[in-house]
Design a binder for these strands. Structure first.
Lengths: 381, 381
DNA sequence: CTGTTAGCGCCTTCAC
DNA sequence: GTGAAGGCGCTAACAG
């Protein structure tokens, strides 16, 4: 019923092996023979049996790209760029030669689903796997993922991390491209501080994620450097003192300000909206809000306006990622640009072995501060 | 080296056949035996060989979801919902039982790549394929896709269309969920007309796509019903007359107004920006702009402001899709809501055979007009 | 350059 | 309820 390679061989009057050779193109075949085989393939409308070929060759042409949230352009842009690099342009014939099948898998940010997808990809003997975005830092999951990645690597699957820092466990990977979230966040907050802001709220992403932690750390680094926040009990004395020097009325400098002015939410605008309302309640004198990402920042903007406050006159708002829509926000959003498409494309090339990995396998990708209309000096009040 | 089913069988002291049976769960096995096998699987950290099993069973657990642009939330939302429905919640063990591997493939809107992906999926003997979003209407591609889908269906792959109308060729599919783009677009333009707008610009999507055509048709239906635009040469006389009755100074009613006030661009904000600038040049008296979708509308808003015009006082702007960010635009965007998540989920269930197809296999999904702040009555001028 | 020969690892009738 | 055996369709050594 279904046409097989043997059928093609018969029609082209060659052996199955020869057909296999022209199809895979990895072996010298006489031009005339190839011609005949190709014609037979077209005549019979033959399509290679993937599973059979993967079984025999012990490799498949599947490449998985894992993302935390496919509805978020942050991931869409990276995944799209990676996929374009992996899938190749196609030859328009629809015949699909030796192309890889680049597919994206949506984990929804769930470590369980991430693990499941990894297993499924392992089962398919995937040629490569690209993990994008921040990882959950829960030790159990971290270990499980590490073990799984090691197994994948052992089985010959190329593992690439994109926008995700290599874990301390040191799992096996071809390359890890990490964004400089910490540095970007620090520069962003420094920008606000230089504008004169002192009461800065922070809407952080979900706790336990590397991206969240790094961005928050960058923010706090800047705050502390300005003597504006307290890290933990150990630093309370010193930093509180510095704080008092800088601020007034016992503020800033309160040992709990960091916590009081930080809210953890998920990466969506609704959460940003709610969290900002909450921050505004906690600290009515707040003059700036830094959001975990641009999407959250949009929600923050809505909340600020909801309270009858103007951006940036009354409250400055900043985001992170510089997604395409951020420049169209009104006012345009000050944010930190991450070269998502470039990183995704590079990850794709790394997964294909088309590019040599960075020294040590690890590369840090710079984040660029984009100052736009949503931030300005605070009104004197 | 790599552990196989036979290894598990040996360790569990049963035959390979039995192991296969407990793994697939499609056959009665004594509880104690199953227990033993499962333990052996865990002990050995066995992972099924997908290609081998697909080859033997002549089916795979791969389900492909094709999207035009993975960086566009329009597709991300649908794909994510479908994937969640297909992939199941996972059991947290990372063992991955009889789960399907739901993957999304980014065609970039290119028919060639769409065809290539379809071939790749066919090669993998995919269990199902979900095609999302509008199709290109070029006859050659239409025929090629149709033929391919028929072949897939013949091979046992369940084909589901989501947000894509069934093609006239009548290709084989389990179900087709089509958005009421035409009706939604018509109601949107009717809303503007009822507000008093007469000079309405339209930033359409890429030509040759069903979505573009349907939305544009809906818009023109409304315009013509109001006697405000001219379809083609055939209708020029009649409609132009009606137009003159309604308008003044030979406008509206010009036989080329439809073309003059319509610009085709791709679905991104930059295009929306450029197109709107162009429209503003062509028709400075324009009081409203309808965009192909929300993303394009955002660009349109930027262009309107660039010209020093206010929204909605000077120019009303409307979008389509009601993506999450649209409500946060300033002013909030009037648009047409499409139940993307619901449609995607339903498509996923259909692909899994978990839901019975609509009568005739075709269902139209309603589009709801969302009136918000970006549209208002035109200033008298 | 091309044909021949063995499997790849699993599922699936069949018997028991 | 369980085991034994054949083959799914293709690739990868080998010969020639």
């Amino acid at each position: 019923m279904t046409v097989t390679l043997a059928d093609v061989a018969a029609r082209a009057r060659v052996s199955p092996a020869t057909v296999s050779r022209v199809l895979n193109g990895n072996y010298p075949v006489a031009a005339s023979t190839r011609e005949r085989v190709l014609r037979a393939v077209d005549d019979l409308d033959y399509v290679l049996n993937g599973p059979a070929s993967s079984l025999a060759a012990a490799t498949s042409d599947l490449v998985g790209i894992l993302v935390n949230d496919i509805a978020d352009p942050f991931f869409g842009i990276m995944a799209g760029a990676a996929q374009a690099e992996i899938g190749g342009p196609g030859d328009g014939s629809g015949r699909a030669g030796g192309e890889k099948l680049a597919v994206v898998c949506n984990t929804g940010g769930s470590p369980e689903r991430e693990l499941t997808y990894l297993t499924l990809l392992q089962r398919q003997r995937a040629a490569a796997v690209v993990l994008t975005g921040g990882a959950v830092e829960d030790p159990a999951h971290r270990a499980a993922i590490s073990a799984k990645l090691t197994k994948l690597a052992d089985a010959g699957t190329r593992v690439v991390l994109c926008g995700r820092p290599p874990l301390p466990d040191g799992e096996a990977f071809v390359a890890a491209l990490a964004f400089d979230n910490r540095g970007g966040a620090r520069r962003l907050t420094e920008h606000l501080l230089s504008l004169g802001h002192r009461r800065i709220g922070y809407v952080a992403g979900p706790a336990e994620r590397t991206t969240t932690r790094h961005r928050l750390e960058g923010h706090r680094d800047a705050m502390r450097a300005a003597g504006l926040a307290v890290g933990g009990a150990a630093e309370a004395g010193r930093t509180a003192g510095a704080g008092r020097t800088a601020g007034g009325q016992g503020w800033p400098g309160d040992a709990r300000d960091e916590d009081r002015l930080t809210v953890h939410v998920s990466y969506d605008r609704r959460s940003g909206y709610a969290a900002t309302l909450e921050l505004l309640d906690r600290e009515p004198e707040m003059t700036a809000v830094v959001a975990a990402n641009d999407t959250v920042a949009l929600g923050a903007c809505a909340a600020v306006r909801e309270r009858g406050l103007r951006i940036p006159e009354d409250v400055s708002v900043a985001g992170f990622d510089d997604l395409p829509f951020s420049v169209d926000a009104v006012p345009a959003l000050t944010t930190v640009r991450l070269p998502l498409a470039e990183a995704g494309a590079r990850a794709g090339r790394l997964a294909m072995g088309k590019e040599t990995p960075p020294p040590g396998g690890i590369a840090t990708i710079a984040a660029e501060l984009m100052v736009r209309g949503s931030t300005a000096a605070p009104r004197g009040r």
